[in-house]
């Protein structure tokens, strides 16, 4: 599914738009409306953050969102119902993004089955390294796709070896830092994206700290998709979140697709 989406994007010589939102943030209704809005605005893939008490790679904005949702008694089966509902109306690929411990209860097999049945297309697990082949196999055996993260510190060996798991998509982290940080080094990012491109032949998206049309412009020709997370999550915490969100992302999408 993810692959097919990116094939279409490539055929059209375009770049994908990959927004990230946190499940049930700021509340369940607004989350569902935001999900619908993003699909209507032609998001190519949507990442849904699974809230976790200890999200070690998240900056303040997303960490706060995770904690808020948990305080509001987040229920994973409600989320799965919402995904099922969404999928009855849209075919936008959905990726569950989060931390290993949220993906193995009651056990990894059941979690995968439940997520697949609800309509999730794949997982991006921040703290699951590519060497955990067996855990990644379980994901794939349940017909879910797997997204591999790569970072500026990834070695050539990792870039080559992670392909053994046949990821559906590679997500390049722009910087040494947590989500939403503002230390983009344009030269390093484009250089690394080109180097990764030379080694791999799967869709390559880019994220962490991308917030403005200027950022988008810097990378869109070096990547298959742009991920925008923290700034969207931040907007969803504000009054009139949906209108503000639409006003914020419309020009970004225009830039990404231009």
């Amino acid at each position: 599914m993810i692959n097919k989406t990116f094939k279409n994007i490539k055929t059209n010589k375009a770049t994908g738009f990959v927004p990230y939102i946190v499940a049930h943030y700021p509340n369940r209704d607004t989350f569902k409306e935001a999900l619908t809005l993003l699909a209507e605005l032609n998001a190519d893939v949507i990442e849904i953050g699974i809230p976790f008490t200890d999200p070690i790679a998240e900056g303040k904005v997303i960490e706060k969102a995770h904690h808020k949702v948990l305080e509001d008694n987040f229920n994973i089966s409600d989320l799965l119902d919402d995904v099922k509902d969404f999928k009855s109306k849209f075919d936008t690929p959905l990726i569950a993004m989060g931390y290993t411990n949220s993906f193995i209860n009651p056990d990894q097999e059941s979690f995968c089955q439940n997520a697949k049945n609800a309509g999730f297309d794949g997982f991006l697990i921040v703290d699951m390294p590519y060497v955990e082949h067996e855990m990644i196999e379980i994901i794939k055996n349940n017909d879910l796709e797997f997204v591999q993260l790569l970072a500026p510190t990834s070695t050539d060996k990792t870039i080559t070896n992670c392909l053994a798991n046949e990821p559906a998509m590679v997500y390049y982290i722009t910087q040494r830092g947590v989500t939403g940080s503002g230390n983009l080094d344009y030269a390093e990012i484009t250089e690394n994206l080109m180097a990764i491109r030379n080694k791999i032949n799967v869709p390559l998206v880019t994220g962490f700290g991308i917030k403005t049309t200027e950022h988008v412009n810097q990378f869109k020709n070096f990547t298959d998709g742009i991920v925008i997370g923290s700034s969207i999550v931040d907007i969803l915490s504000k009054p009139n979140p949906l209108i503000t969100l639409e006003n914020y992302i419309s020009p970004l999408i225009k830039e990404i697709k231009a």
Binding site: V126, D127, A151, T153, I173
Partner: peptide
């Protein structure tokens, strides 16, 4: 055990 960390830290642990 294992090495359940963000990819950014893999190289430092290696």
């Amino acid at each position: 055990g294992g090495t359940f960390i963000p990819e950014t830290l893999s190289h430092a642990c290696e």
